[in-house]
């Protein structure tokens, strides 16, 4: 299990990196944290001939707090996402989910942008990004554009990024003080890939659910919001019954994948359980008075 040979470039600027990607097209691969890419290279399932390492590109690792969003540089490591007080203050949901990624040594190296671009359906950050309607800023030879998270993920391990585009930052909307959040995932062992995860974000006004966001990961080829379940929640009085109903709606709405980690039927049942628990957590946080 040793990687095939490749040429190594470590550009210092984004422009350099993009021109390298532009030049080599599909033969090139971007190396961010490498915690998903390098295992594939070791197995020779990925065999880029040019590896463009963006760890030395300036300006890609930052946290910028705004009124509406927190903007996080793409090369920000998972460990920082999990522990930065600025990020935790803006989206405790994102921080919490980042703490579930792999193991500590993996989180020290893996990056937010890398995770989104890798588009593993069982990854935590894509699920949260979709749930929170994060926007992803990318730069390529054609210039800069902003993509809504739910438009980024095309299929399992596939995004709408062009080969020469680099994720540069992600804007996560701030979770408001009157919102409650919950995140649950089912893993067979700690640090292993989640079989199914659910992220929930609820706001209650005048005793009724004013807005609801429910995202699922691991169940299907891409993370997605379950609008059917969200609609079932909005306008209702939040309680065990409405939560159970929403969880059932979510379980019926998904078309789960099937593999050695879980059959489609099993995943559907996990969607039910994880959704209910994530919603209960969100309710609990609302009741405790902190989002």
């Amino acid at each position: 299990m040793k990687p095939a040979a490749f040429a190594y470039c470590a550009p210092r600027t984004l422009e350099e990196a993009i021109s390298l990607l532009d030049e080599h097209g599909y033969d090139a691969k971007l190396l961010a944290g490498g915690q998903s890419l390098v295992p594939l290279m070791n197995l020779r399932l990925a065999r880029p001939t040019v590896l463009v390492d963006i760890n030395r590109v300036d300006g890609l690792a930052f946290v910028e707090s705004g009124d509406e969003v927190v903007r996080i540089g793409a090369m920000t490591r998972h460990h920082t996402v999990a522990t930065s007080s600025e990020i935790r203050g803006a989206s405790p949901l994102l921080s919490h989910a980042a703490g579930h990624i792999g193991y500590r040594a993996i989180r020290h190296r893996g990056t937010l942008g890398g995770s989104l671009a890798h588009a593993d359906p069982a990854s935590e950050l894509p699920c949260v990004a979709v749930t929170q309607s994060a926007t992803v800023r990318v730069t390529g030879s054609a210039g800069e554009r902003t993509i809504r998270a739910d438009e980024l993920f095309l299929a399992e391990m596939t995004t709408t990024l062009a080969p020469d585009e680099i994720v540069t930052s992600v804007a996560i909307p701030r979770i408001r003080p009157d919102e409650g959040w919950g995140f649950r995932e089912f893993v067979r062992k700690v640090g292993d890939f989640a079989v199914v995860m659910a992220a929930a974000l609820l706001r209650v006004a005048d005793g009724r659910v004013a807005s609801a966001r429910l995202g699922l990961g691991g169940a299907e080829g891409t993370p997605r919001r379950v609008t059917e379940a969200e609609q079932a929640l909005v306008g209702s009085v939040l309680g065990a019954e409405t939560i159970e109903k929403a969880a059932r709606v979510a379980a019926e709405a998904v078309e789960p994948t099937s593999d050695i980690h879980g059959s489609a039927d099993y995943r559907r049942r996990l969607v039910h359980a994880m959704t209910r628990r994530a919603l209960q957590d969100a309710l609990g946080r609302l009741e405790a008075g902190h989002g």
Binding site: Q35, V38, N42, D53, A105, I106, R109
Partner: peptide
């Protein structure tokens, strides 16, 4: 985790890093 080393103060997997980096 058998290949864990400390790089710039943080534990990392030395099987997932290239020496060139």
């Amino acid at each position: 985790g058998s290949c864990t080393v400390v790089v710039d103060g943080e534990t990392m997997r030395s099987c997932l890093l290239f020496a060139a980096q």
